[in-house]
């Protein structure tokens, strides 16, 4: 399911209360890997929750229940290892670092004594980039040929199919919270770096605006400039602090990993046809 189909489906689910089951399942799978669509779903779901308990589309609970019952009923299949989504739980590192020694007693002991509150924990943050192929054959009517959202390296890379004559436009999504920076690197199949955004001579990495939904990055790239047809990988590095010109230069020249400041690393594949 492509992103363009998800938001109208979310709308339909909220207004009508349900959508065809197979579409719901596809939508849910898509939401698990696409930050932009999830940001849309989350925002809409917060609104529906604010209306009251009776506003929730009944299909969400029912479809999830059916899925779980089918899963636990099936022999020899344990629940998949649950991840905190494919998207980063921003700031939860602080919790993780301190929680290593945590022993969670069961049954719970006494009242909920919150003597300390960890900052910024568990705020799942929508974050990702999306690449659009623009068919620019007719400048007076540029059309989107396709789009794909980035995903974590531990899930199958979404693939965007473009033609060599197309332009590539990148956009980012970042949930509410602190500002972050972004560097995007494209590599050819042999590992050669073919694109860096921002350009190596920029003063710093791209500053991201919290709350942005598919905000376009400044540069549009002619795909012909990337190189020969074939498979390319586009990697997005989300950074807790800006990279200065020197660090960007090192990244461009030697592919040096920026290291500690990387909060999230996501990628997508680009298939360039002649």
């Amino acid at each position: 399911m492509t992103c363009l189909k998800v938001a109208p489906l979310v709308d339909r689910l909220l207004v009508a209360g349900r959508v065809p089951g197979w579409r719901f399942r596809r939508m849910w799978r898509h939401l698990a890997t696409c930050g932009t669509c999830r940001a849309y779903f989350d925002r809409a779901a917060v609104a529906w929750r604010a209306m009251g308990p009776g506003a929730e589309p009944p299909q969400i609970a029912e479809a999830r229940a059916d899925e779980v019952v089918a899963r636990v009923g099936a022999p020899k299949r344990r629940p998949s290892r649950w991840r905190l989504g494919a998207w980063t739980v921003a700031g939860a590192g602080a919790l993780a670092a301190l929680a290593v020694a945590a022993r969670v007693a069961w049954p719970p002991h006494g009242p909920d004594r919150s003597t300390f509150v960890e900052r910024g924990t568990a705020a799942a943050r929508a974050r990702g980039i999306r690449a659009f192929c623009l068919d620019v054959a007719r400048p007076e009517a540029v059309a989107v040929r396709g789009d794909a959202a980035s995903a974590r390296p531990d899930v199958a890379s979404p693939v965007l199919a473009c033609r060599a004559g197309d332009d590539l436009q990148l956009a980012y999504t970042l949930g509410a919270g602190a500002g972050e920076d972004l560097v995007v690197i494209a590599r050819s199949a042999d590992g050669r770096r073919v694109l860096l955004e921002p350009a190596p001579n920029a003063a710093r990495s791209t500053a991201l605006r919290p709350g942005a939904l598919d905000e376009p990055l400044a540069e549009r790239v002619h795909l012909r400039a990337l190189g020969a047809p074939g498979r390319y990988t586009i990697e997005a590095l989300f950074l807790s602090a800006p990279l200065d010109a020197m660090a960007l230069d090192a990244l461009a020249a030697r592919g040096a990993d920026p290291g500690r400041g990387v909060i999230d690393r996501q990628q997508l594949a680009l298939d360039l046809a002649p």
Binding site: A32, A101, A102, A124, A126
Partner: peptide
Amino acid sequence: FSFRSGEVWMRFRGYHSPFELEQAASE
């Protein structure tokens, strides 16, 4: 919820994303 980590009490502040919340509850 709150929990103990060594000698200190910590707090898990809960899920804000309805999707993450649903996934966690399901699991």
